[in-house]
Design a protein around this nucleic acid. Structure first.
Length: 559
RNA sequence: UGGGGCGUGGCCAAGUGGUUAAGGCACGGGGUUUUGAUCUCCGCAUCCCAGGUUCGAGUCCUGGCGCCCCAGCCA
């Protein structure tokens, strides 16, 4: 396994349990698993679980983490998702080695275990309708009551189960249930379903089965079969733990995995529910699963997030049982920290306005040197062409600017990054009063951006030479929702809170010449943020960049 | 009002009866700086409430209060 190993994984209550289990010699080897259902794409919430499980496998001697597709419901699952999930896990930097499994690999064993339960008179075939089963289950405060089919003989149950298996019944006609206690205070223990009839072919097993196991039965047994020692899942499964343990106890499985629950990740200004993500994708509210605004791993990848940043984020947020909503700034901080050290710099003008240096010779051009990283000389430097007519950012000029505005305004001098000091003399406007051109004079003695007299220049702005610039489209992304917790909105639909400005497309952006050869990696456009080529829409003759994240901007905050 | 969980600063999170309650993010302020970036320094809580046990409690006990999850032949 690669990089992740070097990162320090902070301790948490789960690791404390594992430490104690090793200390007490309950286990010699730790085995975890990441068990996605292939019914959608992975998101940052899954990354939390992936990092937890795989990092444990990296940190404990001889430990392993299995990747297991929980494919027990052919009605919802597709192999398309399996491939996407594998790609995402790999991209995050983890390796399941030869531990790739599917719950469907165990269908035969699962069935044998079900037969065993029937033989032990701990499971029965119910023939109530779905509606009646619901009625018989009772509710939160009232106990349920026994199904009239609850006391069928073992022989009859065996016979019916076999027929269910071979497809002799229609869906919904029968159901295999555990015989536990219809009056249990925990509703999960009120004779939960074990197998339901689904006359459907399965991506992995084709048409061999007409019945498919339910999660509660399949998951614990699969864990036991694989010798999982610690089965980590989210809080909503807490109530299922007694059932998890019940199955393994009745079946007397050799291995007894321990289920431990932790709280799922919530991030503000976005949604994490698979159902809602499906809805956004299928409803065309976003551009597919890999829309850069989505918290899906494929979306974040396209946006330009790095695996290292996501791993760092996951280790910072911790693992507990407390409900939480993490602020986006934590994620962005992890991102910026990584991007700051790894990305080389470039000058790019997103909202261009012409800057004309009146005392610079008309036909002259020269090559200046730009450092690729201000703190890392190893990243080298590059040539940046300079000439009389430049583009600068529209927001870098202001008439009647306040004292603290360290940019251009009539009479003020600024430094053009890597180039010269220029002083604004006047501007040219159109009939509407829009500024068309900013005119300046430059000081030839300040080549490279420094002066012999040591005069202090407070402001440095970026620029590109108009005749050398390459034009590009730049997509600026912002939070997908306008409120911090769209998912917990009770009165209104979360889709009403989609941020209409979550994507802003800028055309005609002017980038420094070297960007014509931009590679598939992140760049910092100085003073603006981190950007990368869009993997889908960018081409050599029509560059499209995504803004991964902006730079911190204490000036904007102050205003 | 059945069952299961959770409650330490704005958001996370250490803390497992005994120094002035770690750390990160955010926020406020100072310094450095050819990115108002980076870097750096400083500031920023008595632990949901109320009783109790103890020489000593965020950590133990009792009673409240608040929030989350569960009534799929989904996972």
């Amino acid at each position: 396994m690669s990089d992740p190993t070097v990162e320090s994984a902070p301790s948490n209550f789960i690791r404390n349990i594992i430490d104690a289990d090793i200390e007490s010699a309950k286990h010699q080897q730790v085995v975890t698993r990441f068990p996605p259902e292939p019914n959608g794409y992975l998101h940052i919430g899954h990354a939390k679980s992936i990092c937890l499980n795989f990092a444990i496998a990296q940190d404990y001697p001889d430990a392993v983490c299995h990747l297991r597709f929980d494919d027990t419901n052919p009605g919802k699952e597709k192999s398309e998702y399996i491939e996407a999930i594998k790609e995402d896990v790999r991209w995050l930097g983890f390796d399941w080695g030869d531990s790739l499994h599917h719950t469907s690999d165990y269908f035969e064993q699962l069935y044998a275990y079900a037969v065993q339960l029937v033989k032990q008179d701990q499971a029965y075939v119910d023939s109530l309708s779905a509606e009646d089963i619901r009625l018989y289950r009772g509710n939160l405060t009232e106990p349920g009551k026994d199904s009239p089919y609850r006391n069928r003989s073992v022989e009859e149950n065996l016979e019916l189960l076999e027929k269910m298996k071979t497809g002799e019944f229609a869906e919904g006609e029968h159901l295999l249930r555990a015989k536990i206690d219809m009056a249990a205070p925990n509703i999960n223990m009120r004779d939960p379903a074990i197998y339901r009839i689904k006359n459907m072919s399965h991506p992995m097993t084709g048409d061999t089965w007409h019945i498919y196991p339910m999660y509660d039965f399949a998951h614990c047994v699969s864990d036991a079969i694989e010798g999982i020692t610690h089965s980590l899942c989210t809080l909503e499964f807490e109530d299922h733990r007694p059932l998890y343990d019940w199955f393994l106890e009745q079946l007397q499985t050799p291995a007894r995995p321990q289920q431990i629950e932790f709280s799922r990740l919530n991030l503000d200004y976005t949604i994490m529910s698979k159902r809602k993500l499906h809805e956004l994708v299928e409803g065309g509210f976003v551009d597919g699963w890999s829309d850069p605004r989505l918290p899906t791993l494929s979306g974040m990848r396209r946006r330009g997030y790095t695996p290292a940043a996501i791993r760092d984020f996951c280790s910072r947020i911790g693992v507990t049982k407390k409900d939480n909503i993490i602020e986006m700034s934590v994620l962005e901080n992890s991102l910026r920290e990584d991007l700051n050290t790894t990305s080389s710099r470039a000058l790019a003008v997103l909202d261009p306005i012409k800057l004309i240096i009146d005392n610079y010779p008309d036909d002259q051009e020269e090559m200046l040197t730009g450092v690729n990283h201000p703190k890392d000389p190893e990243m080298g430097h590059r040539d940046v062409p300079f000439s009389k007519v430049l583009y600068i950012e529209r927001s870098d000029y202001m008439a009647d600017a306040p004292k603290k505005f360290f940019r251009l305004s009539e009479g003020r001098e600024v430094r053009l990054r890597f180039a010269y000091y220029v002083t604004c003399t006047h501007v040219v406007k159109d009939e509407q009063g829009e500024v068309l051109e900013v005119h300046c004079t430059y000081d030839p003695e300040t080549r490279g951006g420094k002066s012999a007299d040591g005069r202090k220049i407070k402001g440095t702005i970026h620029w590109v030479s108009a005749q050398h610039a390459v034009t590009a489209e730049v997509r600026m992304y912002d939070r997908l929702f306008t409120i911090p917790a769209p998912a917990s909105e009770k009165e209104r639909d979360y889709k009403e809170f989609i941020n209409p400005e979550s994507i802003q497309v800028l055309k005609g952006c002017q980038l420094e010449a070297s960007m014509a050869g931009a590679e598939k990696r992140a760049y910092q456009f100085e003073r603006q943020g981190y950007f990368c080529l869009d993997s889908v829409d960018s081409s050599a003759d029509a560059l499209v960049f995504n803004r991964i994240v902006s730079l911190r901007d204490s000036w904007a905050k102050k205003k």
